[in-house]
Nucleic acid binder design. Structure first.
Lengths: 209, 209
DNA sequence: TAGATTGTTAATCGATTAACAATC
DNA sequence: TAGATTGTTAATCGATTAACAATC
């Protein structure tokens, strides 16, 4: 990463960079000390030139004549996403989606930890949820102070109160796994993750004529 | 949908069409009998001309001079994704991600039902999983015969045996929620759903300089 | 009819790709 | 050095957008 400026990177490129990172983390380390743009492209189903162009936006991560060094690549890609610090996320909603995140091995590998699970339902508060104590909304400031919480994840069906809570606590990244669109003030970043979208796309692919 | 031919539609357009459909399904029906491209664009954070262009690939879903009729739009969009028939999906892996899908209200609304949950772990087979009996891999042919199963969902960490099972049973849509990339023979459609990709994108957005 | 809003086109903008110079 | 593979450019290809004609 040679540039100090944060250049404007397209959503698709950024998304692919995330995929590259996840692929590297899944690779058997002993067998892959180096990886070429061609090998990479084959795994991900892309083209070597696209891989190199994606890296090029950040000045390139290799040296001409040699395949990429997996260790260097990993460290550069982690830096792109600000993963040098340990990142905390706050889950809003003690739901099956929350459990899925608790169970997600990639998050641990990325040095992203679940700093707490909050629920609005009073009967759930203080109960155990797969090894985590469910917290009350009023506990969020204390949790945030201790855990470098950058992102709040909305896993409940109704996103409005969750967004309100995150905005009040100035948690500026909002990952919306609920089915409804929602908005937040300027300075907050929301991502609507419509999981069924991928399934529908697949259904379209299956239609034949 | 005026065209009989399946035109080549870009991934981004198709993905937005899925989002449009999900938004319509979440809209309070009483208040929205009609919706204009401008209203739509505002909800989804897009532009009216892009909404209309997306619909235009399918010949357009409205009549000049009038906003779209929500009922017609819903029916057209469902048709785009082949949702006129009741679609069945098979879940491979009795995992938290599987529970998340069982709990997903959008799937029910889309007339997509979970036809069965299969696991490779013998100790899990025949046990109850949130109201579903966990099935053995050998039961898949019978399940498929009864349930119009179009898609198999891989929710376990290790995708290889799951893909093998789906290919053997000629389930041609493979929705891979596992962290690893995987390939399948020609004629099968695989979608790798890297959920952490969205989270990483959000982390990038939060970096400031 | 007049007004509203779509369908459709074409210009603009951005992403992909191939080609090759650079260089380890 | 020669070979390999990157970094970088520029051409091509595709998506977005604005503008307006069509029309209910």
């Amino acid at each position: 990463m040679k540039d100090i400026f944060k250049i404007s990177i397209s959503r698709v490129t950024l998304r692919r960079l995330a995929d590259y990172l996840c692929i590297l983390l899944q690779l058997p380390v002993e067998r892959f000390k180096q990886i070429s743009s061609a090998q990479f492209a084959k795994i991900i189903g892309s083209k070597p030139s696209r891989v190199r162009q994606d890296f090029h936006y950040f000045g390139g991560f290799g040296k001409p004549g040699h395949p990429y060094d997996v260790g260097i690549l990993l460290s550069e890609l982690k830096q792109v996403f600000g993963l040098d610090d340990r990142i905390g996320i706050l889950i809003v909603g003690a739901t099956p989606a929350a459990e899925m995140l608790l169970n997600n091995s990639m998050l641990k590998t990325l040095n992203i930890h679940i700093a707490g699970i909050v629920d609005f339902n009073r009967r759930k508060i203080d109960k155990d949820f797969h090894g985590h104590k469910i917290r009350a909304p009023k506990d969020v400031p204390a949790l945030k102070a201790d855990n470098n919480i950058k992102i709040g994840v909305i896993t409940c069906e109704e996103p409005e109160p969750a967004v309100k809570l995150l905005v009040e606590n100035n948690i500026r990244g909002i990952w919306n796994l609920s089915p409804r669109h929602v908005s937040a003030p300027k300075g907050f970043h929301i991502r609507y993750e419509n999981i069924t979208g991928g399934l529908l796309h697949l259904l379209y692919d299956l239609i034949e004529l």
